[in-house]
C-alpha cells in the first residue's frame, strides 16, 4: 500500500563527492516488501522546489522501521534534502513502483548485479535479499572516478565485487561492460540499474540468459497519473503503446523496453 508519512531523519552523511546517505524512520517501512522500489519525497513545505523527487531505496531494516537511501545532491530538491540533520522530518510518499523480482533467481544460482553511478544503491538491498536466499552474487559497479565511488566495501562483503571508473582512478579503467567481458563473467540471471546508455550496453552482453533493468526518468506524480515518465515497449506496432516508468517499472524485464 502506498502511504504518505512525515518520516524522521535518523542519520545523514556525505559518503562520496555530492553523494549522500540518509536513513529515515517511520511506519511506512512496513510497506517496503521488495528491493528496487522507490520513494517520492519532498524535503520541505515550500512551493519551491515544488515537486517531489524520486529516490531509490538502498537498504530496508524492517525490525528498526528504518530505510536508507543514497542520492546525489545536484538540484534544488536534493540540495535541500542534503541539509537535513537527524531529528528533522521529510515528507515521504511510497513505496512506489515495481521492484526487482528476487524470486526469479533460484537458491544455488548466480546473479550478476551491474550498477552505474547513482544506479548502484538499489542493487544493495537486492544483493542482501539474494544472498539471504542462498543466491551467489557478483557485483560490477561503475563510477565516474574514485571521488564519486561508494559502497564498494559493503558490496564486497556480500560477494565478488569489481569496480570500474571512467578515468581508472579506482578499480579498472573503463565501463562496467568492459569488466564483464574482460573477466568473462557468467551468471544465471542479471539485474542492472544505471544510465540508459549503460543499460543498453548491458542488454547486449551475453553474460546471463535473462535479466531485469531499472530505468530512470523525470517524474511528476510518481504514481502513474500524469504521463510524464513514459517509454516505448520494444514490441509496439502502432507506435502508441507505452509503459510508465513510475508505475509499470522502474524495473522491467530486459528487452521489454525500447531503450
Amino acid at each position: 500500500m502506498i502511504q504518505k508519512e512525515l518520516m524522521t531523519v535518523v542519520a545523514q552523511s556525505e559518503i562520496a563527492k555530492n553523494i549522500f546517505e540518509m536513513t529515515l524512520k517511520g511506519t511506512l517501512v512496513d510497506q517496503m516488501d521488495e528491493p528496487g522500489k522507490f520513494v517520492h519525497l519532498k524535503a520541505g513545505e515550500e512551493v519551491t522546489p515544488l515537486l517531489r523527487r524520486p529516490i531509490s531505496i538502498a537498504r530496508i531494516e524492517p525490525e528498526k522501521q528504518e530505510f536508507t537511501m543514497i542520492y546525489r545532491a545536484e538540484g534544488a530538491g536534493t540540495n535541500v534534502l542534503a541539509r537535513k540533520r537527524p531529528g528533522d522530518k521529510v515528507n515521504v510518499l511510497g513505496p512506489l513502483g515495481h521492484g526487482f523480482p528476487v524470486g526469479e533467481a533460484q537458491t544455488g544460482q548466480t546473479a550478476l548485479l551491474i550498477g552505474g553511478g547513482i544506479g548502484v544503491p538499489p542493487l544493495y538491498e537486492l544483493s542482501r535479499r539474494l544472498n539471504a536466499k542462498g543466491v551467489k552474487t557478483i557485483h560490477v559497479l561503475g563510477f565516474q572516478n574514485q571521488a564519486a565511488a561508494f559502497y564498494t566495501e559493503q558490496f564486497a562483503l556480500l560477494g565478488e565485487t569489481y569496480v570500474a571508473t571512467v578515468d581508472g582512478s579506482l578499480g579498472e579503467q573503463g565501463f562496467v561492460t568492459d569488466v564483464v567481458n574482460n573477466h568473462g563473467l557468467k551468471a544465471d540471471i542479471f539485474y542492472s540499474c544505471g544510465p540508459t546508455v549503460m543499460l543498453k550496453a548491458v542488454e547486449q552482453l551475453h553474460a546471463a540468459p535473462h535479466g531485469f533493468i531499472s530505468l530512470e526518468e523525470r517524474m511528476g506524480c510518481g504514481i502513474g497519473a500524469c504521463f510524464a515518465c513514459v517509454c516505448h515497449p520494444s514490441a509496439d506496432e502502432t507506435g502508441t503503446s507505452y509503459l510508465k516508468i513510475c508505475s509499470d517499472g522502474p524495473v522491467f524485464k530486459a528487452g521489454e523496453v525500447a531503450l
Binding site: V47, T48, P49, L50, L51, G75, A76, G77, E217, R218, M219, G220, C226, F227, A228, C229, V230, C231
Partner: peptide, 9 residues
C-alpha cells in the same frame, strides 16, 4: 521525454 521540468513555484 523529458516532458516535465520544475520552475519556481
Amino acid at each position: 521525454t523529458p516532458r516535465v521540468a520544475e520552475t519556481p513555484a
